[in-house]
Amino acid sequence: MTSQLSTKRAWWRWRPDQQWEGYLFILPSFIGFFVFVILAVIFSLGISFSDWGLTGFKAWAGVENYQALFRDPVFWRALHNTGFYLITIVPSQLVLGLAMALALNQSLRGVGFYRLIYFMPVVTTIVAGAIVFRLLFSTHGPVNGLIEGVAGMFGASVQMPNWLGSTRHSKWAVVFLTLWKNTGFTMVIYLAALQGVAPELYDAAHTDGANAWQRFRHVTLPMVSPTTFFLFIFQAIGAFQLFTEPFVMTQGGPANSSLSVVQYIYLAAFRDIRMDKAAAMAWFLFLFIFIFTLIQNRMQRHWVYYETSD
């Protein structure tokens, strides 16, 4: 226990026993991080509390930029859209990713090939993907053709959705693009987690007479729950920060129906030259994500199972 006492010392205290030269090695990277990230972040906080134009500081503005945000209907629309992306994209990605991982965790012939195929969108350029998706989801495109065909088989005629041109469907087009792009990543992480589950646990469950569903529900799910937690947080942050997908696929339209918050930040900064408003939105989004993640972190003890924790 005496050794533990020494580690109680504040982290910044000089410790002669420590190989302080180590700090020298991380210094080049730290300088870059400090100048281009930390400094810029602190700087943007200052901008958000001032009247800031193209050439710089004009006057202090207090919380005026933040108050103006809440009166801005377009900001609310963007927030609403981002919430929609969050509640559609995150759960579907987790479910789809786990399902794909379970399927590809079998010893099938050519399983490596399938894993490659499903992972391919993750490393594909999003712009190329978006162009293909624009064609797929165009009014007379293959997706509508498929819907028409299926509906025709049942003798029904349906109004073809105008995926990119109507305010009701544009968000879904963005959601599908994002799922296509990112689910492969979820699958790979789950695949690694599944392979880390000890086979003895399944054997024991099998001996106890558990059927396939029970083995999944009571062995697999709890054992991969730390991974689920990680992916949940990771993807929720990704959904909050969604930018490229709506930017290249719908440009936020029509009628701002697919505009995300980060896209609106970009527009405020570079279309409207309102750096102060953009900075205020960025900090608001940061606080939102921070609180969201904090809550999730607190909630995790109710459903995340760490094998080593007892």
Binding site: V74, S166, T167, P254, A255, N256, R271, D272, R274
Partner: peptide
């Protein structure tokens, strides 16, 4: 100066709903 923001964020997007026939 604020025209770009007004037209880009409010007027233009609203008119798109008319052009979409909604």
């Amino acid at each position: 100066p604020e025209w770009g923001e007004l037209n880009g964020s409010i007027i233009g997007p609203a008119m798109q709903r008319i052009w979409a026939g909604e």
